[in-house]
Amino acid sequence: MKLNVNPTRMELTRLKTRLKVAVRGHKLLKDKQDELMKKFIDLVRKNDELRRAVEDELTESLKDFMMAKAVMGTEMLEEAIIMPTEKISLNVSKKNIMSVNVPVMEFVREGKEGASIYPYGFAQTSAELDGAIKKLHNVLPQLLQLAEVEKSCQLMADEIEKTRRRVNALEYVMIPQFKETIKYITMKLEENERGTLTRLMKVKSMIQK
Protein backbone atom coordinates (compact mmCIF):
# COMPACT_ATOMS: atom_id res chain seq x y z
CA MET A 1 0.00 0.00 0.00
CA LYS A 2 1.50 3.26 -1.04
CA LEU A 3 0.52 6.56 0.44
CA ASN A 4 -1.69 8.86 -1.57
CA VAL A 5 0.68 11.74 -2.34
CA ASN A 6 1.66 13.83 -5.32
CA PRO A 7 4.78 12.54 -7.02
CA THR A 8 6.85 15.67 -6.58
CA ARG A 9 10.42 16.22 -5.55
CA MET A 10 9.34 18.02 -2.41
CA GLU A 11 7.14 15.15 -1.34
CA LEU A 12 10.05 12.81 -1.97
CA THR A 13 12.38 14.72 0.35
CA ARG A 14 9.71 14.88 2.99
CA LEU A 15 9.08 11.15 2.81
CA LYS A 16 12.77 10.36 2.95
CA THR A 17 13.09 12.28 6.21
CA ARG A 18 10.05 10.54 7.61
CA LEU A 19 11.47 7.17 6.67
CA LYS A 20 14.73 7.99 8.38
CA VAL A 21 12.88 8.98 11.55
CA ALA A 22 10.73 5.88 11.42
CA VAL A 23 13.72 3.58 11.04
CA ARG A 24 15.50 5.24 13.91
CA GLY A 25 12.39 5.10 16.08
CA HIS A 26 11.92 1.47 15.22
CA LYS A 27 15.45 0.61 16.26
CA LEU A 28 15.11 2.45 19.54
CA LEU A 29 11.76 0.87 20.33
CA LYS A 30 13.05 -2.55 19.47
CA ASP A 31 15.94 -2.08 21.87
CA LYS A 32 13.53 -0.91 24.53
CA GLN A 33 11.33 -3.93 23.98
CA ASP A 34 14.24 -6.34 24.27
CA GLU A 35 15.48 -4.79 27.46
CA LEU A 36 12.00 -4.65 28.97
CA MET A 37 11.46 -8.28 28.13
CA LYS A 38 14.72 -9.28 29.76
CA LYS A 39 13.86 -7.44 32.95
CA PHE A 40 10.28 -8.67 32.87
CA ILE A 41 11.25 -12.31 32.63
CA ASP A 42 13.57 -12.02 35.60
CA LEU A 43 10.92 -10.24 37.59
CA VAL A 44 8.08 -12.54 36.71
CA ARG A 45 10.06 -15.62 37.71
CA LYS A 46 10.66 -14.00 41.05
CA ASN A 47 7.01 -13.08 41.27
CA ASP A 48 5.94 -16.64 40.66
CA GLU A 49 8.26 -18.06 43.28
CA LEU A 50 7.38 -15.44 45.82
CA ARG A 51 3.67 -15.87 45.33
CA ARG A 52 3.84 -19.59 45.83
CA ALA A 53 5.87 -19.19 49.01
CA VAL A 54 3.66 -16.46 50.41
CA GLU A 55 0.46 -18.28 49.61
CA ASP A 56 1.64 -21.40 51.36
CA GLU A 57 2.70 -19.57 54.45
CA LEU A 58 -0.33 -17.39 54.58
CA THR A 59 -2.71 -20.31 54.22
CA GLU A 60 -0.87 -22.04 57.00
CA SER A 61 -1.09 -19.11 59.31
CA LEU A 62 -4.75 -18.47 58.54
CA LYS A 63 -5.43 -22.09 59.32
CA ASP A 64 -3.76 -21.65 62.69
CA PHE A 65 -5.84 -18.61 63.21
CA MET A 66 -9.01 -20.52 62.56
CA MET A 67 -7.89 -23.08 65.08
CA ALA A 68 -7.31 -20.38 67.63
CA LYS A 69 -10.73 -19.01 66.90
CA ALA A 70 -12.30 -22.40 67.37
CA VAL A 71 -10.53 -22.87 70.68
CA MET A 72 -11.17 -19.42 72.09
CA GLY A 73 -14.48 -18.36 70.64
CA THR A 74 -14.97 -15.49 68.21
CA GLU A 75 -15.77 -12.79 70.70
CA MET A 76 -12.78 -13.41 72.93
CA LEU A 77 -10.50 -13.48 69.95
CA GLU A 78 -11.79 -10.28 68.49
CA GLU A 79 -11.53 -8.62 71.84
CA ALA A 80 -7.94 -9.75 72.17
CA ILE A 81 -6.72 -8.36 68.87
CA ILE A 82 -8.92 -5.33 68.39
CA MET A 83 -6.23 -2.89 69.53
CA PRO A 84 -2.96 -3.60 67.77
CA THR A 85 0.30 -2.56 69.41
CA GLU A 86 1.84 -1.26 66.27
CA LYS A 87 0.83 0.58 63.18
CA ILE A 88 2.32 -0.22 59.84
CA SER A 89 2.60 2.34 57.15
CA LEU A 90 4.20 2.33 53.79
CA ASN A 91 6.88 4.43 52.19
CA VAL A 92 6.47 4.42 48.45
CA SER A 93 9.01 5.84 46.08
CA LYS A 94 9.20 5.52 42.33
CA LYS A 95 11.76 3.66 40.34
CA ASN A 96 12.11 4.01 36.62
CA ILE A 97 12.73 0.80 34.71
CA MET A 98 12.94 1.61 31.00
CA SER A 99 10.45 4.46 31.36
CA VAL A 100 7.99 2.38 33.35
CA ASN A 101 7.40 3.87 36.74
CA VAL A 102 7.31 1.08 39.25
CA PRO A 103 6.72 1.53 42.96
CA VAL A 104 9.37 0.72 45.52
CA MET A 105 7.77 -0.06 48.82
CA GLU A 106 9.31 0.07 52.17
CA PHE A 107 7.25 -0.41 55.22
CA VAL A 108 7.64 1.31 58.51
CA ARG A 109 6.53 -0.15 61.79
CA GLU A 110 5.36 2.39 64.24
CA GLY A 111 5.06 0.98 67.68
CA LYS A 112 6.38 1.49 71.14
CA GLU A 113 9.98 0.49 71.70
CA GLY A 114 10.22 -3.10 72.72
CA ALA A 115 6.49 -3.70 72.61
CA SER A 116 5.63 -7.29 71.92
CA ILE A 117 3.83 -8.22 68.72
CA TYR A 118 0.97 -9.63 70.73
CA PRO A 119 -1.59 -6.98 71.49
CA TYR A 120 -3.13 -8.83 74.42
CA GLY A 121 -2.38 -10.27 77.79
CA PHE A 122 -1.60 -13.94 77.94
CA ALA A 123 -4.11 -14.84 80.62
CA GLN A 124 -7.20 -15.38 78.52
CA THR A 125 -5.81 -16.29 75.14
CA SER A 126 -4.61 -19.58 73.82
CA ALA A 127 -1.20 -20.58 72.58
CA GLU A 128 -2.59 -21.22 69.11
CA LEU A 129 -3.30 -17.54 68.69
CA ASP A 130 0.26 -16.63 69.65
CA GLY A 131 1.57 -19.02 67.05
CA ALA A 132 -0.76 -17.75 64.37
CA ILE A 133 0.08 -14.12 64.97
CA LYS A 134 3.78 -14.79 65.03
CA LYS A 135 3.58 -16.56 61.71
CA LEU A 136 1.51 -13.80 60.19
CA HIS A 137 3.98 -11.28 61.51
CA ASN A 138 6.79 -13.13 59.79
CA VAL A 139 4.98 -13.37 56.45
CA LEU A 140 4.27 -9.66 56.28
CA PRO A 141 7.63 -8.50 54.87
CA GLN A 142 7.38 -11.12 52.16
CA LEU A 143 3.81 -10.15 51.47
CA LEU A 144 4.84 -6.57 50.90
CA GLN A 145 7.70 -7.62 48.69
CA LEU A 146 5.20 -9.62 46.69
CA ALA A 147 3.01 -6.56 46.38
CA GLU A 148 5.91 -4.58 44.98
CA VAL A 149 7.06 -7.24 42.55
CA GLU A 150 3.59 -8.11 41.36
CA LYS A 151 2.63 -4.53 40.71
CA SER A 152 5.86 -3.98 38.79
CA CYS A 153 5.11 -7.05 36.70
CA GLN A 154 1.64 -5.81 35.88
CA LEU A 155 2.87 -2.42 34.83
CA MET A 156 5.72 -3.84 32.80
CA ALA A 157 3.49 -6.33 31.02
CA ASP A 158 1.33 -3.46 29.98
CA GLU A 159 4.26 -1.41 28.74
CA ILE A 160 5.68 -4.36 26.83
CA GLU A 161 2.41 -4.85 25.06
CA LYS A 162 2.25 -1.20 24.13
CA THR A 163 5.82 -1.18 22.89
CA ARG A 164 5.27 -4.31 20.86
CA ARG A 165 2.32 -2.71 19.13
CA ARG A 166 4.39 0.31 18.25
CA VAL A 167 7.29 -1.76 16.99
CA ASN A 168 5.01 -3.86 14.83
CA ALA A 169 3.18 -0.85 13.47
CA LEU A 170 6.46 0.72 12.46
CA GLU A 171 8.01 -2.45 11.13
CA TYR A 172 5.12 -3.85 9.15
CA VAL A 173 3.07 -0.81 8.22
CA MET A 174 4.84 2.52 8.33
CA ILE A 175 8.27 1.59 7.01
CA PRO A 176 7.10 -0.56 4.06
CA GLN A 177 4.58 2.13 3.19
CA PHE A 178 7.22 4.83 3.11
CA LYS A 179 9.59 2.66 1.09
CA GLU A 180 6.97 1.86 -1.47
CA THR A 181 5.86 5.45 -1.83
CA ILE A 182 9.43 6.65 -2.19
CA LYS A 183 10.00 4.08 -4.90
CA TYR A 184 6.81 5.13 -6.65
CA ILE A 185 7.78 8.81 -6.62
CA THR A 186 11.31 8.09 -7.85
CA MET A 187 9.95 6.01 -10.70
CA LYS A 188 7.44 8.65 -11.63
CA LEU A 189 10.04 11.40 -11.59
CA GLU A 190 12.43 9.36 -13.70
CA GLU A 191 9.67 8.58 -16.12
CA ASN A 192 8.86 12.28 -16.43
CA GLU A 193 12.51 13.04 -17.03
CA ARG A 194 12.74 10.46 -19.76
CA GLY A 195 9.55 11.84 -21.26
CA THR A 196 11.00 15.35 -21.36
CA LEU A 197 14.25 14.09 -22.82
CA THR A 198 12.58 12.26 -25.69
CA ARG A 199 10.40 15.24 -26.37
CA LEU A 200 13.40 17.50 -26.52
CA MET A 201 15.21 15.14 -28.88
CA LYS A 202 12.15 14.93 -31.06
CA VAL A 203 11.78 18.73 -31.19
CA LYS A 204 15.46 19.12 -31.98
CA SER A 205 15.31 16.70 -34.87
CA MET A 206 12.16 18.41 -36.20
CA ILE A 207 13.95 21.80 -36.14
CA GLN A 208 17.00 20.36 -37.90
CA LYS A 209 14.99 19.07 -40.85
Binding site: S61, L62, F65, M66, K69, L77, E78, I81, I82, P84, T85, E86, K87, I88, S89, L90, N91, V92, S93, K94, F107, V108, R109, G111, I117, Y118, P119, A132, I133, L136, H137, L140, L144
Partner: peptide, 25 residues
Protein backbone atom coordinates in the same frame (compact mmCIF):
# COMPACT_ATOMS: atom_id res chain seq x y z
CA UNK B 1 9.08 11.36 45.78
CA UNK B 2 8.36 9.62 49.03
CA UNK B 3 4.91 9.57 50.54
CA UNK B 4 3.42 7.72 53.43
CA UNK B 5 0.67 5.30 52.63
CA UNK B 6 -1.46 2.92 54.56
CA UNK B 7 -2.06 -0.74 53.91
CA UNK B 8 -5.58 -2.07 53.61
CA UNK B 9 -7.10 -5.52 53.71
CA UNK B 10 -10.49 -6.38 52.24
CA UNK B 11 -12.12 -9.77 52.47
CA UNK B 12 -14.46 -12.01 54.32
CA UNK B 13 -14.48 -11.65 58.06
CA UNK B 14 -12.76 -14.89 59.01
CA UNK B 15 -9.75 -14.30 56.83
CA UNK B 16 -9.10 -10.63 57.37
CA UNK B 17 -9.60 -10.38 61.11
CA UNK B 18 -6.15 -11.89 61.57
CA UNK B 19 -4.53 -8.90 59.89
CA UNK B 20 -6.05 -6.63 62.47
CA UNK B 21 -3.48 -7.85 64.94
CA UNK B 22 -0.69 -6.55 62.71
CA UNK B 23 -2.00 -3.02 62.62
CA UNK B 24 -3.30 -2.98 59.08
CA UNK B 25 -6.53 -1.31 58.06
Amino acid sequence: MICMYKIGVVGERDAVIAFLALGLQ
